[in-house]
Design a protein around this nucleic acid. Sequence first.
DNA 1: TATTGGTCATGCAAAAAAGTATAGCCGCGG
DNA 2: CCGCGGCTATACTTTTTTGCATGACCAATA
Lengths: 297, 297
Amino acid sequence: MTNTIPWELYRSLLAVLQEGSLSAAARALDLTQPTVGRHISALEAALGQTLFTRSQAGLLPTDAALALRPHAEAMHSTAAALERMAHGLGSEARGPVRISASEIVGVEVLPPLLAPLRDRYPHLEIELLLSNRVQDLVLREADIAVRMTPPQQDVLLAARVDDAVIGLYAHERYLQQHGTPTTLEALAGHALIGFDTETPFLRSAAQRFSLWQRANFAWRSDNDLAQRALLRAGAGIGVCQTRLVQPGSGLVRLFAQEFALPLPTWVVMHADLRSSLRCKVVFDALVQGLRAGPAVG
Amino acid sequence: MTNTIPWELYRSLLAVLQEGSLSAAARALDLTQPTVGRHISALEAALGQTLFTRSQAGLLPTDAALALRPHAEAMHSTAAALERMAHGLGSEARGPVRISASEIVGVEVLPPLLAPLRDRYPHLEIELLLSNRVQDLVLREADIAVRMTPPQQDVLLAARVDDAVIGLYAHERYLQQHGTPTTLEALAGHALIGFDTETPFLRSAAQRFSLWQRANFAWRSDNDLAQRALLRAGAGIGVCQTRLVQPGSGLVRLFAQEFALPLPTWVVMHADLRSSLRCKVVFDALVQGLRAGPAVG
DNA sequence: TATTGGTCATGCAAAAAAGTATAGCCGCGG
DNA sequence: CCGCGGCTATACTTTTTTGCATGACCAATA
């Protein structure tokens, strides 16, 4: 295998896949369209595969190109992580740190923890990558992750912090109108707010609380923020992390004994990044803050 | 972040780290020494970090360069995986497939399984990556892995196959000379063959068989092949996968009831690679072969 | 139907990167 | 102590790559 394919070509490949045309890719890469076109041609020649079927309305990627896309994306992630790391290797905590977390944690929990940090280290740049899909730290899409699943790779540095606790809630307004259920079974008659697509975690939760299944939900959303907005609007009964419920919000906890789902929580980082002062600073702050039991802002 | 650092520079960085000098890196990359030198200079300028302290006897990498090395290696792995995948995207099973497995599995189990496969698909190229360290499939160091740990990433496609079973063995010659232990406790007086460095799996094994600890071993090696060679040479009592012991080898199983450690075994592949015919072919062959209960060759 | 805004392909000049050759420095061994 | 083989750094030339300008094509729209 002559390993002489310039890596630049992969970057162009990715840009064309992302942007859909040579011209758009050229704009994104700050190159010109002929250049990107030549890159693609060179790559096709080197790989012995047709990557795009040319058309004037843009390029149509072949199956081959689509199959290669994840690899190109991985290279991009890695390159970005490399730059990120290099950007603050000095003795000062400065430069970008990417944190992956769920949307609701990123919105409600992290900001009050991180704001004072930036006061101490004004040159820190915090990037929040919020999604419920578990970001792949190994692929370097993020530097630090706040996760509800146990860390799986031994190249990762993990610190367990306080469990989040999922409780069952409803707005007092809803309870006034529809009554307060007195047994778990009675929940069946209520407007339940739940998830839309099933995940492994939800499957295991459904085993403990058999009612908690998609078919029983009057409201379905995978967006935790939307679920909480529905709760606040008095739309029905749903779940929420207990630490996110502020007193005076009108939300009432139901079945506090029977319905309490602890979520083991970890802060995870690449072991590599220990040498990066700014990552370490953020990691430590997250661990400490999440152990202190943060209040909602 | 001006994301305009040419990826080529990372490749040169890696080569210099691996080879230890600009000249050697240039040879490895099939470039010239001034070119590689310019690459490093450009990278240092772009990253704002000194990567090497120049000296005439070669370059000494700074901490920064060492910190960046894993990233550069990841890019290299990914690029290689991309090429590998592209190399056989056609409708035929041809091209390279990298299989990661433990040394002993790669030596004893896989060859008889894979040999007939290459008869059917003569254009397959099989690369065996044998090490006891769990290869990171996510980093694309290999396409397929035979593992004794549960698959951890959901981007991976895994098939569980027959458990390997670890048994306790000694050569009949050894037993004639030293006697056959009748109780597990009696093992303490024998020449035990065991591991050298502790791993998580070994820690858990030691809990079940308290004798199985480093301090008690007369022979220590992390190399399973060496351990088996010691067994065969009558050096003492040690463990071995039961399926690797051929009748007539002179090895006698001890405490077959009490000492039997099943090793759950998986064949794992990137989900991506399903679209790669040659990977799928090898994957299927491994799964089928490892379910049939292979005999040792 | 003619125009506009988008695409890709191609010829040619300019710029950027490569290679070549050479000089200088160091350590080692006869 | 001097030559040899390793290394890096620099001036210069050559090659490669890029950018620019342009032409052709298509689709949507006035």
